[in-house]
Design a protein around this nucleic acid. Structure first.
Lengths: 137, 137
DNA sequence: CTTGATGCAAACGCTTTGCAGAAAT
DNA sequence: ATTTCTGCAAAGCGTTTGCATCAAG
């Protein structure tokens, strides 16, 4: 669990709260909203405060342990175990497909050729329809 | 000004407030935040209320006259004169480059081939470096 | 005259902050 | 013992809502 190691290395204190928050983020390959993280943590140890969760998420983000993105006006969090990657989210069933950074290579080239623009794709969240839902619609 | 026409056609009332808000959105090719729209409108006619602006923006969005997206945690608004299009925003100088929908065609195909995923790109905002800033960095 | 829009103030949801007490090192 | 973290409560921010009044049609 590299988050824990990072916390130690930075001389930060390793509290139960922080361990639980790190757990929550690693509990899924999908994104979590702050509410989901708060629920996970409070479910296991009632009494843990929202502000602690928000503070820890901020800390973990600054330490590079997690990513924060936006989806539908909500902030969402994801761990950073496998480096840069992206998500395809089905707007019907909500299924998330992870994909690697290299899908953007060709698209980046197109943008650079046509507009001279060097795009940066940071942990993108792309909305659409997955194979199943595409067939049904 | 097709927004005005749409308002009329829908039997909605054409007030000074609404005209000013439509003006604001057409005053630039770039995105505007709600704050910028509120400022534009109040600058010309002091006393116009925020809630009127928010209500009108919602109305115009539902009528398909404007787009709402998110950028850096903020909601941003853009008129819809030329149909679907996208923006490349330079994270250094803030310059906005408009680009047409067709830049995504090939990328869409890649996603469909590799993941069976039918992506939808709605008025995307892509961050990166423009030609000038790229050279300087 | 009728319907719909406005301004105001208050509520909203999510996130952040100041502070005193509590826990990790 | 010394930091640093926590819970609490309160404030912050952008946005939304209920309501009485006002204006467009």
């Amino acid at each position: 669990m590299s988050c824990i190691k990072t916390i130690r290395e930075k001389g930060l204190k390793l509290t139960l709260q922080r361990q639980l928050i790190v757990d929550a983020i690693h509990s899924t390959q999908e994104h979590l909203t702050s509410d989901q993280i708060i629920a996970y943590v409070q479910d296991r140890t009632p009494g843990i405060n929202k502000s602690t969760v928000y503070r820890t998420l901020q800390l973990l983000e600054e330490a590079g342990c997690i990513y924060k993105s936006e989806l539908g006006g909500q902030l969402i969090y994801h761990h950073n175990e496998e480096g840069h990657h992206h998500h395809l989210i089905c707007r019907k069933c909500g299924r998330t497909i992870d994909c690697k950074d290299d899908i953007f290579r060709q698209f980046e080239k197109t943008l650079e050729d046509r507009y001279g623009f060097k795009a940066t794709f940071n942990h993108m969240v792309i909305s659409g329809l997955c194979t199943k839902c595409k067939r049904l619609s």
